[in-house]
Amino acid sequence: MALLEIENLSAFYGKAQALHDLTFNVEEGSIIAMVGANGAGKSTLLDSIMGLTQTKGDIRLDGTPITAAKPQDIVVKGVGYAPERFNLFPYMTVRDNLLVGAYTAREDIETNLDMIHKLFPRLEERENQETVSQSGGERQMVSLGRALMSSPRLLLVDEPTIGLAPKVCLEIADVLKRLRDEFSLTVLITEQNANFALSLAEQIMVLESGHLVASGTSDELSSDERLAAAYFGH
């Protein structure tokens, strides 16, 4: 069953069109990856789902339209977002950053904090540290943790491995799998690192200049010579 349905979605920055008639579904309980080069429209897609850009077309969450809804309403409906640049609150502690994430889910604070500390023990150790003084990997963890504090059903993660050490990338991949397997979350990630996406996602979509040009399992996409050469390095 599709948790997220996207139909003929276009996105605009003023008069410039960044996404062109995208249509796809995200099945509940799956990890889906959207791969593409810089400027392909990956971040715009996630921003559009969150109501942060001007869009045309339909976005439905569990059958309910969320097109052009306000970001805070989309969060309440069950979408969490960890953006590429993290957008953390630099002079607030790790704990306070997480608590802001709980703004719409205050009754779940203890449960969610417990889950986040199990997923990222380092965040509990450094809960009183301001995020301005943290490493990229730690900020990524805070960003994911903050998104999880809103008790989402769908987690959007923009370029989770960008600028991170390989060891941290593996840690993040492990956490995303655990979120799907242990906590029944649905995850939509965007990635430039196609091999990371292949190792993680059941289904991969390829975005080029705002157009969805391919979609399939890792085996299906790897067998396409052009895509394999362009994105998967073989």
């Binding site: 969150m50 977002y81 953390l88 609150f89 607030m92 306070d96 719409t104 903050r146 504090m149």
Partner: peptide, 15 residues
């Protein structure tokens, strides 16, 4: 505090 530091971060946190 969140709005004062990062408006987008606040918005995607439901603020």
């Amino acid at each position: 505090q969140a709005v004062s530091m990062d408006a987008k971060g606040a918005a995607i946190s439901g603020v």
